[in-house]
Design a protein around this nucleic acid. Structure first.
Lengths: 112, 112
DNA sequence: ATAAATACCTAAGTTTATTATGCATATATT
DNA sequence: AATATATGCATAATAAACTTAGGTATTTAT
């Protein structure tokens, strides 16, 4: 597993992008999806995830809908209208960041 | 300018990479070089830079050599042998991070 | 039975940066 | 000549975003 600390600052963007692709997801599902998509390279800890979800909800970017599956709770999160807009912004910023960083650390293989 | 907070965690790698390319540099020069290379997208603050340089030196990855230019001091930093090894590691981690992130936020344009 | 997986959560502490200062010399502008 | 900007170093207080460690409870696999 690579250097986890490089991912600092990108958690919100990752969550928003997943919800843009998957419509609605619950917390545990997000951790599993990220693990799967990154082949174990990135493991979202719950101590980071849940506060992040609560903040996104407080900021009006996510809606929550509680579901009961068997005897257990699930909280499904979904993008609000504002959340969809903000996702586009954050993805653009992320793309610019990745391009800049790629250029910085390896000019030969820059994306532009 | 994009989202500065995405760069959190990558400062050490950026410094090491610059020193791998430019042999020796002083602090202020690093801030200017980064601004130039990123076309103003990333501005290294001095409050982040100097403590980072001191830490890299304390960790034995950099050597410092003081020079006097006119009446003003410059502290030239240079990779140690260990620093060169660590730079290679950190650049590999960075490449993996960038690839993973690219894949996460935009699977279509993934680098592999 | 017991362990591991699923599912939520919070609090203390750490890391890494930003913001705000401070000091001093050199150069450009009014 | 006075003032602002650029060069060059540095630290301290604060903030942001995590990790680590802990808690509760249900479901499935061993």
């Amino acid at each position: 597993m690579g250097n986890q600390k490089l991912y600092k600052g990108s958690l919100q963007t990752i969550i928003l992008k997943l919800l843009a692709t998957n419509d609605k997801m619950y917390g545990y599902e997000i951790t599993q999806k990220v693990k799967e998509l990154t082949k174990g390279e990135l493991k979202i800890t719950e101590g980071a995830l849940y506060p992040a979800l609560h903040k996104l909800e407080a900021d009006g970017l996510l809606n929550v809908e509680v579901a009961k599956v068997g005897n257990r709770l699930r909280k499904y999160y979904k993008l609000t209208e504002n959340g969809t807009k903000e996702t586009a912004n954050k993805l653009e910023e992320m793309q610019e960041f990745l391009k800049t960083m790629q250029h910085l650390v390896n000019p030969k293989f820059s994306l532009e």
